[in-house]
Design a protein around this nucleic acid. Structure first.
Lengths: 151, 151
DNA sequence: CCCTTATCTGGAACGAATCAAGTTTGTCGT
DNA sequence: ACGACAAACTTGATTCGTTCCAGATAAGGG
């Protein structure tokens, strides 16, 4: 374990610092975390890191392509370390939980639609909105109960 | 012209007020505007409306389904009045411009991929990232000009 | 026309993120 | 190893978009 964070950093010409290693570690252990949680997790190891350092590190790593920033509408920024595959996310409207989803249609499915309006498109981001298993059952739809029931 | 804003409001049991009509008018004339611009446009007609009123109206209209809120990562909230069709958006990484895109694959293309993780998905949102015609030419990629065409 | 209540006004408050100035710490050259 | 330079960090304040609050206003049914 302990993926070679140091090598990853050096590969993109970033200095190897403890805050950066801690952030990478936190992202490896937690799939989709927001900035605040990153700060908490990092401080578990390094109590003295400033929030600014975390923001800075997240930005540097995102720019370098080591991590990916995801930000569903209305929520705070979250980060994940899976960057190489083209996967998407399901977001729970109720609790904000996020899960990874491989697009069943194939990879980069809708990218072809893009050349409208002369835009040069390089990425298609898909966000599925719905309810996670917990919220789907607790938020009990009053009347659509039986028909929607696949799960 | 002047679509029947009043009827639209009444149809969803919302009171017909001048701020609301002004907001609907602003959204009809401008495809994808952020809250600040809405405030400006509304105040062109009604100089006394408070920013809070606009926020409130936007929320009410969004909840009622008359308008749609879109919020690409890292940008402020924007609103649009096209709500009935399932269309998506191209967002310029450089200037933030937004344009509508009909998904060529068909409507609600990737919705099928969704049942992973027990989530009950009811909407698939697609955001295409790239560069608008203006920025694509001005940001002149130094060498990747011809080859990188698609994807 | 009056009453109820949704809606609007004005101002304060909030959280996420950024900026600025100064200090620490990696990394490279010798 | 040692020192220097610049990248990276700390601290603290600031901005920005948005929301919360209390009171005033006005839409729409009776």
């Amino acid at each position: 374990m302990t993926p070679d964070f140091e090598a990853q950093l050096r590969a993109v010409s970033l200095r190897v610092t403890r805050p950066r290693l801690a952030v990478l570690g936190a992202l490896r252990d937690h799939p989709h975390i927001d900035t605040d949680t990153v700060i908490e997790l990092v401080r578990a190891d390094l109590p003295t890191v400033s929030h600014q350092a975390v923001y800075d590190v997240l930005r540097a790593l995102t720019d370098a392509g080591l991590i990916r920033r995801i930000q569903p509408a209305g929520a705070t920024a979250r980060y994940e370390s899976r960057v190489d595959d083209n996967h998407h996310h399901v977001v729970c409207r109720s609790c904000g939980a996020i899960a990874d989803v491989e697009c069943a249609v194939g990879h980069a499915p809708c990218l072809t639609a893009s050349n409208d309006h002369g835009f040069v498109v390089d990425e298609a981001e898909v966000v599925y909105w719905g309810f996670c298993p917990d919220c789907a059952t607790s938020t009990k739809p009053t009347e659509t109960a039986s028909s929607e029931g696949n799960r």
